[in-house]
Design a protein around this nucleic acid. Structure first.
Lengths: 326, 326
DNA sequence: TTGAAAGCGCTAACAA
DNA sequence: TTGTTAGCGCTTTCAA
């Protein structure tokens, strides 16, 4: 692969001059530029960004650490992140951490080794201390990581409230919430808190079913089936849409009609759900705004590592009404 | 951020020695190793992989160019690619090319600039020539790019055959295929070819509806609705599962019963569909095998750029029978 | 078992 | 307007 020196020789100028042409820097004669451009084209030259970055420049690389991109929610989020960062001249290194703390740890070290300019983190496996000592600009999605790492999330609390209100308004009396197993320091727990609060105010009770995030859909389906078989509830809030899909599936199989016998509301409201399951009432997270916010904050930190940021940024959710809560 | 020299000074040895410790190379006394490790830990040292790569080594970076990761099929594929490459010590730079040729071109240049070790490409925007001159190991998914770039794909032809056979076996007489607009040089066109061939053999006719890949689900839904309103067909093959979901949705709204009034079969068979829409009969692409194959080929090319590879690798599909073709 | 020195491809003073 | 030179952080001969 051709180097800057090759171009210099071919064009009969010094390496510095070539560098100047590439970076459009300093004063250059038209003649020189033309010669250099010709040589660059001739050799299909691409400046080596490794060398460039080694010389103290930024790498224009951002690390994205998330549970995994096969989940439509994170799929859409990554796509949005990629889209926005591309326009600003950044590339992304994708790190699916799954439920694997060791993998997340390895990725963190690797991102440091690759000298990424910053990190967007939304996985939930590592202890806070491990993020403290990374020493790189980090923005967190929906997870408390440390005093100095800003969290961006949707208004989980209000989302929980909206869910409870919707079910009640639809006439449900015996409510159930199905949520992932409680995670320490996760703002997503507030979905439950908000939900509970609305019911508490009306002195109403509700059932809680926790299913670990890492459970397979089959396992989840079984637990839901068990629950539905009891036929004691008439309104369910699932803290993610995929679980709501499983509820619909099991209900269908058991002959439980939605919304006649059972009201249902989900959480996330991805494009996917809106396009392919518009029947589902759900709380929509503002993915675009979340991403815009995260990137804005991250770039500010990259520009100025000292810059003061809030510790929490909460963006409003929106109720999308389908036919499952009519 | 600490450098190798810092470690050397702190441990009271030469940079060379530190390098030897890091790479576990040459003969070293236990005492030296201990000192160096201590210093590394003390300063939370991470070797700069930019510098390392600049010195002629590989970057351990692979570029992934795909239409976009918000589609569950590509989401799952990327996740699988990431998973397998991680285990082999590679990281991925994710490039969502969408339908944007300029973006794909920019990414291609950028991957060259970043000196990735290789590329997996599955987007469909660029001319073949642009891929020719990249001069990096490339493996293609489901797309002809050039003589020297191997293509890995599922057996689209046989998938098309299976689809036709299933619909016929289920008793459909008036068949329809709904597919993305024909793309030049795409093996996916063979889904149509295989479908057609089965019908031709039985001297049966069928209708063809092409909807551009880039159309929004709403647009697609409308065209499908139009089609269903005619009530002239009783069996549909969608060349992707998401479109099949739209058919189900429109049919429901129009009171057309599946499978009683209309048989339906999709294509892709992602985990997502299998978990959340097991009712849909579909042709399953062997994503894991496809990825394993692509990575195996890519790594061989990376190890030895001269190595001879076949131009096409076709992996078997599988019929997943749901209730939409009963 | 260890170290000195050169160089990967580029940028950025400083000179001319 | 252009060139010389040093150096980014690492690896790798070659010597000791």
């Amino acid at each position: 692969m051709a180097t800057l020196d090759d171009i210099a020789k071919m064009a009969g100028v010094s390496p510095t001059t070539v560098s100047r042409v590439i970076n459009n820097y300093g004063s250059l004669s038209e003649k020189t530029k033309t010669k250099v451009f010709a040589a660059m084209k001739e050799l299909n030259y691409q400046p080596n960004s490794l060398a460039r970055s080694l010389k103290g420049k930024k790498t224009q690389l951002i690390g994205i650490i998330l549970p995994g991109v096969s989940n439509p929610f994170f799929g859409q989020m990554v796509q949005e992140i990629e889209d926005q960062l591309f326009k600003k001249g950044f590339r992304i290194i994708l790190c699916n951490a799954g439920n694997d703390a060791n993998k997340e740890r390895a990725y963190l070290r690797m991102l440091m080794a690759n000298r990424v300019d910053g990190i967007i983190a939304g996985a939930h496996n590592l202890n806070i201390e491990e993020y403290q000592k990374v020493g790189l600009p980090i923005i967190s999605f929906d997870r408390y990581l440390s005093e100095t790492i800003p969290i961006v999330s949707s208004d989980n609390y209000h989302g929980g409230q909206l869910a409870a209100q919707s079910l009640l308004a639809a006439g449900s009396k015996n409510l159930q919430i199905i949520t992932g197993a409680n995670r320490p320091n996760s703002p997503t727990n507030n979905r439950l808190v908000g939900f509970k609060e609305v019911l508490d105010q009306q002195s109403l009770d509700f059932k809680l079913l926790e299913i670990p995030f890492s459970s397979s859909p089959n396992i989840k389906g079984l637990k839901i089936r068990e629950l539905l078989l009891k036929k004691t509830i008439d309104g369910i809030f699932c803290t993610d849409d995929l679980t709501a899909l499983l509820v619909m599936q099991q209900a269908r199989e058991l002959g439980i009609r939605i919304p006649e016998d059972l009201k249902l509301i989900g959480y996330d409201g991805t494009d996917f759900i809106q396009n392919y399951h518009p029947e589902l009432t759900t709380i929509k997270q503002p993915i675009v705004d979340i991403v815009t916010m995260m990137i804005d904050l991250l770039l500010r930190r990259i520009d100025d590592s000292e810059c003061e940021l809030e510790s929490t940024y909460t963006l409003p959710v929106k109720l999308i009404t389908g036919v499952t809560t009519i």
